[in-house]
């Protein structure tokens, strides 16, 4: 198990570097750059800028310099936000995304797991139909519709909650709910399907034939098997949620990582783009690793060596 974790951890670095390389290539291939705006710059100034950022060097020299810096953990300074390092910018904006991300994740887990389990236990009941229709709705209504809709109802009609901006617990409720909706829906459906399959399985019949009551059958025998399919979804979901969801941050004007990421792309702010991409890819790989390790604990048939 330990050697599995070490091997998987070691592979994260080269994988992240490959992702960075591909991103770099794509940014370079796209027409335009960070210093040209509507107006064309005078040739002398352009030459100066190129010189300052090393853009007058051949591409492989530029790539080599960038990579050697990145390997040392230095993503350089943003070319748009003068004098701010990429690392600083990420550390500053991450907490906003992480706060709503983690809260949204916990809310989605709470709602999804309990609704899914209960729906499976009461298959074809009105609760089952009701919650699964709601989940279907949750999956088909996109964030950018749900967010404004919630704002409309709870802020502009009922005046209960602030419509946007960071600050206070009240301000967190709407973005967290918007973020959680789709994940809760997904987790509920996965949980229900997983639990239904397990509840029909032979070993649950064995457990009942032993005389165990339904509570023991559910918690001791059924839950673990029912949660296996949910687990593989929740790892990457957490990574995505922590990294911030662009749409929700935009709708609620939250200065999180997602917002900054979009800005960096519009600005063609290459160091910042690469920094965020590297950070996200490492995050996703780490959570995937955590999921795999959890699998090993959940299911004894899975053994890593």
């Amino acid at each position: 198990m330990l050697s599995f974790i070490i091997r998987r951890t070691l592979i994260i670095i080269p994988m992240a570097l490959i992702v960075v390389t591909l991103t770099w290539g794509l940014v370079r291939l796209a027409p335009g750059n960070f210093y040209t705006g509507e107006k064309k710059l005078p040739a002398a100034i352009e030459a100066n800028i190129k010189k300052k950022y090393g853009l007058d060097q051949p591409w492989y020299t530029q790539y080599g310099m960038m990579m050697s810096n990145i390997i040392r953990g230095d993503f350089g300074d943003s070319v748009k936000y003068q004098g701010q390092s990429v690392n600083e910018i990420i550390t500053r904006h991450l907490p906003y995304s992480a706060t709503i991300g983690i809260l949204g994740y916990l809310l989605a887990l709470l709602i999804g797991l309990s609704a899914g389990t209960f729906a499976a236990l009461k298959q074809n009941s009105s609760f089952d139909y009701g919650s699964m229709s709601l989940a279907m709705l949750g999956l088909s209504v996109p964030n950018f519709v749900l967010g404004p809709l919630l704002v409309l109802v709870f802020s502009f009609w009922l005046y209960w909650l602030p419509p946007a901006r960071w600050g206070g617990i009240a301000g967190l409720i709407l973005p967290v709910c918007t973020l959680a909706a789709i994940y809760a829906a997904y987790i509920a459906r996965l949980t229900r399907a997983g639990m239904l399959e397990v509840l029909r399985s032979d070993y649950i019949r064995t457990a009942r034939a032993k005389g165990l009551d339904e509570k023991t059958v559910l918690f001791r025998h059924a839950l673990r098997g029912g949660l296996v399919p949910v687990l593989s979804f929740t790892g990457p979901a957490l990574a995505a949620l922590l990294a911030g969801t662009v749409v929700v941050e935009k709708v609620f004007a939250i200065p999180g990582l997602g917002n900054i990421f979009i800005q960096s792309v519009f600005n063609r702010d290459e160091p910042l783009i690469l920094g965020i991409v590297a950070f996200l890819s490492i995050l996703i790989m780490v959570f995937n690793l955590i999921v795999d390790v959890c699998y090993g604990f959940l299911d004894p048939r899975i053994r890593y060596e």
Binding site: D202, Y203, R205, T206, A207, H221, G225, L298, D299
Partner: peptide, 14 residues
């Protein structure tokens, strides 16, 4: 009761 299929009648997680 003993069931038909011993491969699936025991809980694989316990």
């Amino acid at each position: 009761m003993i069931f038909q299929d011993p491969m699936t009648s025991l809980n694989p997680f316990l």
